[in-house]
Design a protein around this nucleic acid. Structure first.
Lengths: 131, 131
DNA sequence: GCAATTGATGTAATAACATTACATAACCAC
DNA sequence: GTGGTTATGTAATGTTATTACATCAATTGC
């Protein structure tokens, strides 16, 4: 699916995430966008739902927070499994993809006849600077 | 570290999780234990913190819920990376471990000089019965 | 014995994250 | 412009997790 044009609210949320140093919670985004007319959490969550669907944003389950996708290319095709390192010190999040892990997980789930819909891989720890 | 004897509250929470079919939220556990004198969320969270520390329980980040560890052996040594398949249909959670994935993740994090403290791998989808 | 420390517990309040319900407005097809 | 769909606005509520403070019990050191 080609990414459709973003609506006003989706654009505001996307911009907030893109310009952020690190991940943001939905409520942090809400606060950033109050000046732009945001009043309620639902405005943020609705925009995030779409951005997640389009693959422009990722949700970090272990943080209850969101980051802009850092993939350089377009988002018209699925990139398969996305993994993250998350630094507890500085909050830096690094997104990466690895075919070997993807294949291995695929083999393991196939072995239990499990049909994968979404894979979460999040590695908490400390980055080089914060170690 | 050898697992110390569990306190009364820890035992109650552990038993609740062990006897549960699937994962439970902290508040679900609280409700189950009201008859045993539990009154407040903190009683559950404190017990869970210790059980997580001892490796007897795992937290499922994508569900905000907890499961008893299904490893058959004792918990005196670390089992490395734990991964889960989580069925959206029946709620069944299957824990598994894989050295290949662990090694691959280790290589990838080492390459960015990232010091791993905790790794989360959760695969959402549908099990054989619910596919 | 008994202060001092430590760990476990009890209780209340609040903070943080997310959804449901319902109403209104904008857009597009016909 | 009527009807259907999507986006939006607002309020209320539901769910998950933590902070603050008090009490109690076991252990240690003297």
């Amino acid at each position: 699916m080609a990414t459709p044009l973003l609506t006003k609210n989706q654009t505001l949320v996307m911009d907030a995430l893109s310009h952020s140093e690190g991940p943001m919670s939905a409520y942090t985004i809400l606060d950033k966008l109050r000046d732009h007319g945001f009043r309620a959490p639902l405005q943020v969550y609705r925009a995030l739902d779409k951005l997640l669907e389009y693959g422009l944003v990722h949700r970090l389950e272990s943080l209850n927070a969101f980051v802009a996708c850092t993939c350089p290319h377009d988002h018209e095709h699925d990139h398969g499994v996305t993994a993250f390192t998350i630094c507890e010190g500085c909050g830096q999040v690094t997104e990466f993809h690895d075919a070997a892990i993807e294949q291995r997980l695929s083999a393991l789930t196939r072995a239990q006849n499990f049909k994968t819909e979404k894979t979460t891989i999040e590695i908490r720890g400390h980055c080089q600077s914060c170690a």
